[in-house]
Design a binder for these strands. Structure first.
Length: 430
RNA sequence: GGGGAGUUACCGAAGCGGUCAAACGGGGCAGACUGUAAAUCUGCUGGCUCUGCCUUCGCAGGUUCGAAUCCUGCACUCCCCA
């Protein structure tokens, strides 16, 4: 199967500038392509996965990927797909973000390959030195305003009347597409880059780049977009109540990341497997069948979580996330070390108590629940225990008078308390 | 300025002299069921040194053996008439 037919099968192709020819064009020889990443935060998130994986798929197929971080375009703000004018980030903040993104990309792309190494560039490097007058004369001259006004990203913001929510648009954002268009021209000059890939909201910017290249140099460039990653209910993938799902372990722990995918709706699982994993068509189709026959087993979600966690956080973090999952969903906790518990329960509140309280026979289960913060009052703690909702190391504790001693420790000095199904807290006895 | 209604626990809302820590609903917390879903069902839901004690029914006083319930004053909210 060719790269392109695989992408098609996965549903990764939304539009191309050359539907009939692109498959053969890619098969013909090594091509260089690029995709851009917005440095609006210092970490990539689930939304960036599509782009990273796209570049990765191309690299694995022997092509040469360029990841462009928008140090310059980020200063302007891409209006595509946005209903409101964006706040500008400071230069310092942008610089920090650009560096953060670069580090994460090494997980997905091989920058040292001898045949087709990936490349990471920052468009500030070639855009920062333009003077305003030069830019207007050399670039701006090639942009008919009527064409610019016809782009969806502009139209949707200028719509009057029926589109009452439209927020207008500043000249700054209106100029955005010129910068991105020039990126493409620059990359084609500098690196022979002929293809730009992006989310479907990038179509207008991509074609703007292709037009500019034709006008300035008479060269033919190509574009390709992937669909936006949305759930069956129409909302964006990668958002939780507590915010975006990040690829940075500091922001979204590997456990939370793993859990996010485990909880993907049945209706979205097939799509996610196709769009976000590198599993083969055979494997994915078997998972589709399994999902219909035995949805309760959730093999698709497990596989999805496994593949993505491994890719983003590595094998070791995956193992920890899986171990944590086992524990969080009831497995009795025993024979672990402080270090392991600390890692698994990284997201759980903990409290330190004096070790002597374990020896003197005064610390009851009720006290422990209150100390840990799992219960607000002793009355509440008592109720929890009486109703069978109190656990230490995932073993139910009966009787409100139960005294805690060192034999309840799960490791050298840590005890794992749980109230109800999934509220955990650690007590450290030091 | 005149007349009326109200202020109850996390929220809404009963209670109108003792059996009221206060009905009922929502929320919350546990349990069962279950696919780490949704729905459903059950129990609990002021605090504590817990067969009892303490603090709560706008605030402050008073009547009474006894008040969330009656009286007086104060504060705030709402409605009607000017």
């Amino acid at each position: 199967m060719t790269l392109f037919s695989d992408l098609r099968w996965r549903g990764l192709i939304h539009q191309t500038t050359n539907d009939e020819g692109i498959d053969a064009w890619l098969a013909e020889k090594q091509r260089t392509l690029y995709a851009g990443f917005d440095p609006t935060a210092s970490s990539l998130h689930v939304g960036s996965l599509m782009g990273l994986l796209m570049l990765r798929r191309f690299q694995q197929a022997g092509h040469r990927p360029i990841a462009v971080v928008g140090g310059a375009t980020g200063m302007i703000g891409d209006p595509s797909g946005k209903s409101d004018e964006r706040n500008l980030l400071s230069k310092e903040q942008l610089q920090e973000n650009v560096e953060g993104l670069g580090k994460q990309m090494a997980r997905f792309l091989d920058f040292d390959d001898s045949k087709n190494p990936a490349l990471l560039v920052n468009n500030f490097d070639w855009t920062g030195n333009w003077t305003y007058l030069d830019f207007l004369r050399d670039i701006g001259k090639n942009f008919p305003v009527n064409v610019m006004l016809a782009k969806d990203s502009v139209k949707s913001r200028l719509g009057r009347g029926e589109d009452a929510g439209s927020a207008g648009m500043s000249y700054t954002e209106f100029s955005y597409m010129l910068l991105q268009a020039y990126d493409f021209v620059h990359l084609s000059n500098e690196y022979g880059c002929e293809l730009q890939a992006g989310g479907s909201d990038q179509w207008g910017n991509i074609t703007a780049g292709i037009d500019l290249a034709r006008r300035m140099r008479g060269t033919q460039l190509y574009g390709l977009t992937w669909p936006l990653l949305t759930k069956s209910d129409g909302t964006k993938m990668g958002k939780t109540e507590s915010g975006a799902v990040w690829l940075d372990a500091e922001r979204t722990s590997p456990y939370q990341f793993y859990q996010y995918w485990i909880n993907v709706d049945d209706a979205d699982a097939g799509n996610c497997l196709r769009l976000l994993t590198e599993l083969s068509q055979d494997v994915i189709e078997l998972l589709d069948i399994a999902r219909v026959n035995d949805p309760g087993k959730r093999e698709s979600q497990r596989r999805l979580a496994e593949e993505l966690t491994r890719l983003v956080h590595g094998e070791v973090a995956l193992a920890t996330a899986q171990k944590a999952t086992e524990i969080f969903f009831g497995a009795e906790i025993a024979d672990l070390s402080d270090a392991q518990l600390t890692e698994i329960f990284a997201d759980v509140p903990s409290k330190s108590l004096s070790r002597s309280r374990l020896g003197d026979g005064t610390l009851t289960i009720v006290d422990a629940l209150v100390e840990s913060g799992l219960s607000k009052t002793k009355g509440e703690a008592r109720r929890t225990v009486e109703q069978g909702g109190a656990y230490i190391n995932n073993r139910r504790i009966e009787g409100i008078d139960a005294l805690l001693s060192t034999e309840y420790l799960a490791s050298e000095s840590v005890m794992v308390l749980r109230s109800g199904k999934k509220k955990y807290a650690l007590l450290r006895f030091e």
